[in-house]
Design a protein around this nucleic acid. Structure first.
Lengths: 257, 257
DNA sequence: CCCAATTTGTTCGTATGTATC
DNA sequence: AGATACATACGAACAAATTGG
């Protein structure tokens, strides 16, 4: 028989605060009713009555949901609290908080990019419109201007190619992860001032890889596209690998609207 | 010259509420000071004085940070608001909110798993201790008991193998993504009741793959481990592909503490 | 066991800001 | 311009939880 204590739970169950309970209840309520982005929740006054709690408590609950990007408030008549689709930017910022403490190395980031970017490239081969391909070529061209660009600007331009490419994927998860990793890599290198000593080779080789990749995408050759991206990743990873492993990072700034 | 309007910002800048401003300021403060998990922030009273705002406003700001998993509050003497490391679970729950609206298909999830799980397997070959290998074998054994298991239980057990395996990775990002995708897949299949018609073949083949994988890991053969996992993923993806593409999902429940 | 101190948690009343009609 | 309907913010008080004496 169990000991004669009153605790029935092995884990003492964190005992949620009232705002936490209300936030969970509202979240569940939204799911149960199947409310979509744009739907207006009851007013604060209504929520006070429904939950039998004071305004402050209700407001704190709404802040909990707001921080997760799930709701948005507007003042004035016709205003209120509205269900809101969690944006990619918001999700990236929240995930960035986790990464801040996980402090991955440059190599850790490239290990994932090397696995995902080639898959992205292969899956897009033959799927892009002429306009989309032209857009990619424009991005490449813009990253190779006269020469008065700073190293950081070139790096940012190169990053942009990967971000724009990911945006064309039909797979929302692949889109999100590839973009997140590219921007994370950029942040990490900038935060440590590593992009200045990644010699121009990286940037130069990146341009030729990107050009060849666009060609493979246009021709509809998945294997070729995958191979080019794999080589691109391997080259970049090799050039970056000189840097030490442990990384201290900054919070991703909240670029969510 | 720019037009003679007063607006200097192209984007009207969402004008942050006071709690949002305070939350951002505290976040920046923590980063600037380099405060680590466990560090105590000033008391609510102190913060009221510092920011010149009312108690309610300060508390709402703290809720914004709490929802992100960045701080934790305790009452009583020695209590207060403490910097808190964002847990994997919390990060997964927050990312789950994004995925809820992105509603990826089963195929979308497998596309990522097929790219990441083999990389995970390869990177762990020859790196696991005897105890870790034994643990994996135990997990496999527990997922193949008499026969009175329900289909759902078998599915959960199979999932557990992938989660436990990911936990051994030194790469925090790979660890997080692989686990997130495995649990997401499980949620999606359960939510749609798809695991009942994924015939026992899947479960049976999974067992043999897992056994062969453990062997490759023990022998220290990355290529072999990668190949086994690739075949495992391809098989599972093929059996799942019969299901339709679009998927409606639930919020990941907050399993964060 | 109780009591006191400390800190977050919660309530209520009131006033202000903002957007719509 | 004014009335209306909302969220936003303030201030004072009280409640609950935790720690230590």
């Amino acid at each position: 028989m169990p000991p004669a204590t009153t605790r029935s739970e092995p884990h003492p169950r964190p005992r949620l605060s009232r705002p936490q309970k209300v936030a969970e209840a509202i979240k569940q309520w939204v799911m149960d009713e199947g409310w979509q982005p744009g739907h207006r929740l009851p007013s604060e006054t209504d929520l006070m009555a429904r939950f039998g709690m004071a305004k402050g408590t209700i407001r704190e609950a709404i802040r909990l949901l707001e921080a997760q990007g799930l709701v948005k408030s507007r003042t004035g008549p016709g205003g209120g609290v509205f269900v809101h689709q969690v944006s990619e930017d918001r999700a990236a910022a929240l995930l960035g908080n986790y990464v801040y403490f996980a402090h991955p190395s440059i190599d850790d980031i490239y290990q994932l990019r090397a696995a995902l970017e080639p898959e992205l490239a292969a899956s897009l081969a033959g799927k892009l419109s002429a306009a989309q391909l032209a857009h990619l070529e424009k991005v490449v061209a813009e990253s190779a201007p006269p020469a008065e660009m700073t190293e950081g600007a070139r790096h940012a331009a190169s990053l942009r190619f990967h971000v724009e490419l990911s945006a064309f994927s039909e797979n929302p998860l692949l889109r999100f992860f590839v973009r997140f990793l590219a921007e994370l890599l950029s942040e990490v290198t900038v935060a440590r001032g590593l992009h200045s000593d990644t010699n121009p080779e990286l940037w130069q080789s990146g341009l030729t890889y990107q050009t060849r990749l666009i060609e493979a995408l246009r021709e509809g050759q998945p294997a070729q596209a995958r191979a080019v991206m794999e080589a691109h990743m391997a080259t970049a990873q090799g050039l970056m690998r000189r840097q030490e492993a442990a990384v201290t990072r900054r919070f991703l700034s909240d670029r969510a609207r």
